[in-house]
Design a protein around this nucleic acid. Structure first.
Lengths: 240, 240
DNA sequence: CGTCTTATTGAACCGCCTCAAATTGAGTGG
DNA sequence: CCACTCAATTTGAGGCGGTTCAATAAGACG
């Protein structure tokens, strides 16, 4: 079996502060796995057999309610860890992870985590920072859902996706994986209909350019202004 | 200065797996502080000088938007850690912490964290589990805000508060600290008016008993059913 | 007893959802 | 290459949950 090239992952937050030897020892325990577009990496409620570092592609983490509605928890970009249930004291995955593109990830059996952490305490502190950042982001999301209207939330979501997984193209920044109106609705707590209407509006104003599962931000700054805007002002309100 | 009695805190999650000596060494670095009802423990954006373990009382963590709206992030109950900004890589507090009751907390200077973690790696893994749980809870909140209506969200919020900080009283379970309609609104992403209407409705149905900054759950199970209920069913719908 | 915060309640409005239907585009097999 | 199929998207019309605005009431506290 081919082992993983340490130089590819040495710069990742998870391995911050590690020497080449330690890194090699950790990587020796990992396997590299391919996940074709659309396939599940793991399912919500399933025994948490492994934790992962994404190398290529994109993975969507989502939760499903009893009523069958899905909510997108986050999108995983290359270099990020995911499925770290064991590290936070869970024996089962709290969400479903689906490859939205052909993807490659390193996978460690969950059982290796306690041993690795015991030998390399920096793994715990690095993971603590990662999980802490995610907690901050999720709090931001709660604040947005509590105080902003749908249009602003969608704008923020697109800007965040562009920052995390944007690719510069001729006319702006394109979100670098297939994403539907429905996906955006599930990220922002609204319906695909409302998202479609909003994007149509933006497209006619030249802010974005979009197609089937494809979005290009042409005017990120204008979107940013719109995202921060108080709904009371702006636009062309009729003052009687 | 009086030192802290180790037996009071030995059972806390943060200190899981620690021996008496190690615990004493850690506690030696902490100071015990009193925070009168209504006072701020720290403010959002302030330099994160300390991290805390709450011993008595209750603390509300909240974030304020640019527009001045507040959102309650969580309520801290005795035994819980808070203000661990340093541990998750922040130099400033991401939220404001306010004592909602006369409270007492242990405080460690943030500067001690790296040293303590280096010497006692279990602190990092324990904190990782705590932060991980909070991340799960916050995700649950996002899912609720995305899929449920206000009445269900308020029911969930009250049940959670009752579980975390409930006190058995004659007619049910009372939430053990002063909490206003406004506070509940800021936890559930709605307005104090809507919360007031909902609580009034429940009170007239005998589900709760409430007063000024005071709520008693008389029928927790009925509230639970209501919280899980699909809005389409239940009640007395008119079928034409 | 006066003042201030908290809570209640009515009325009107509106952002967004729901329901419904048509359209577009990509992939597939003949 | 074209017809077919199915998923994704668009768009209209109507309704409702919840907000907003406004005013009153009820406790707590000095």
């Amino acid at each position: 079996m081919a082992t993983v090239d340490p130089s590819l992952v040495a710069h990742l937050p998870l391995f911050a502060g590690f020497g080449a030897e330690d890194l090699a020892e950790i990587l020796r325990e990992a396997r590299s796995l391919r996940f074709p577009k659309g396939s599940a990496v793991f399912e919500e409620g399933e025994e948490a057999h492994s934790f992962f570092v994404l190398l290529h592609g994109h993975v969507r983490a989502s939760k499903t309610t009893q009523a069958g509605e899905q909510v997108v928890v986050r999108y995983v970009a290359p270099g990020e860890t995911f499925g770290v249930a064991m590290a936070i004291g869970l024996t089962r995955y709290p969400a479903t992870a689906t490859a939205v593109d052909d993807s490659v990830a390193l996978a460690w059996p969950s059982g290796t985590w306690p041993r690795l952490v015991a030998k390399f305490p920096a793994l715990a502190t690095n993971t603590l920072q990662t999980i802490g950042s995610r907690l901050q982001e999720t709090h931001t999301r709660v604040v947005e859902m509590s105080t902003q209207q749908v249009e602003q939330r969608v704008a923020h979501a697109l800007l965040r996706l562009a920052k995390q997984s944007g690719r510069k193209v001729e006319h702006g920044v394109e979100i670098d994986f297939p994403i539907s109106r429905q996906d955006i609705a599930q990220m922002t707590g609204t319906t695909l209909h409302t998202v479609s209407r909003i994007l149509s509006g933006w497209e006619s104003r030249g802010l974005i350019e979009s197609g089937r599962q494809r979005i290009v931000l042409r005017e990120p700054h204008k979107l940013f202004v719109l995202a921060e805007e108080d709904p009371g002002e702006g636009g062309s309100p009729v003052r009687p």
